[in-house]
C-alpha cells in the first residue's frame, strides 16, 4: 500500500567510495551541511566494489532509492575503478528499466573528497526525487518487509 505522500519517509542507501565520496560525506558533516536522515551510507573501498547485486538486494529489501557515489572519472584512487563502475551501472540502469523499476530510483554521482557541499546538495536533491516517486513496490520482496 502506498503511504500518505506527506508522511512518506523513503529508505535510501548510499554506497560511497572510501577515498572521495566517503570523505566528501565527512566534509558535509564537518561543514554542518544538513541532509535528511533518510540517507544511510555504506562505505566501500572503491565504487567498483559495488556489485549490482548489492543494489538489487537493497531494492528487494525495501529500499526506495539507491545512490552510488565515487571519485570523478579520472580521479579514481585505483586509477580505473570508477570507469568500471560507470559501465556496469549503465547496464544496471537499463536492466532496472527492463524490470519496470523507475530508473530514477537509482543514481550514480561523482563527489570528490573536497566536495562536502556537493554531497549534501546531491543527497537533498535525491531525497526530494525519491519522496516524489513514492514507495518502491516493484522489486520489493514482501517476505523481506519488516
Amino acid at each position: 500500500m502506498l503511504k500518505d505522500a506527506a508522511k512518506f519517509e523513503p529508505k535510501i542507501v548510499a554506497f560511497c567510495c572510501n577515498w572521495c565520496s566517503y570523505a566528501g560525506a565527512d566534509g558535509a558533516g564537518t561543514a554542518r551541511k544538513n541532509y535528511p536522515a533518510n540517507v544511510k551510507i555504506i562505505k566501500v573501498p572503491c565504487s567498483c566494489r559495488v556489485n549490482p547485486m548489492f543494489i538489487l538486494r537493497a531494492f528487494q529489501r525495501g529500499a526506495d532509492g539507491v545512490i552510488l557515489c565515487g571519485c570523478h572519472p579520472g580521479d579514481c584512487h585505483y586509477s580505473t575503478g570508477n570507469y568500471y563502475t560507470r559501465r556496469r551501472m549503465a547496464l544496471l540502469m537499463s536492466m532496472l528499466n527492463f524490470m519496470g523499476v523507475a530508473e530514477d530510483r537509482f543514481r550514480v554521482e561523482w563527489v570528490s573528497a573536497a566536495e562536502g557541499a556537493k554531497f549534501a546538495e546531491v543527497m537533498n536533491d535525491f531525497v526530494v526525487q525519491i519522496t516524489a516517486l513514492g514507495e518502491n513496490v516493484k522489486l520489493r520482496d514482501l517476505r523481506c518487509k519488516k
Partner: peptide, 30 residues
C-alpha cells in the same frame, strides 16, 4: 579496490574486510 570481485562470474573472488557477506549484511540492516 575490489574491481575483480564484481567481474568474477562465479563469485569466487571476494574482498577481505569488505566481503559480499559483510556488505549485504549492512544493506539488510539498513
Amino acid at each position: 579496490c575490489g574491481a575483480c570481485t564484481v567481474a568474477c562470474p562465479s563469485a569466487s573472488m571476494d574482498l577481505q574486510g569488505f566481503t559480499n557477506k559483510q556488505i549485504l549484511a549492512e544493506v539488510d540492516a539498513l
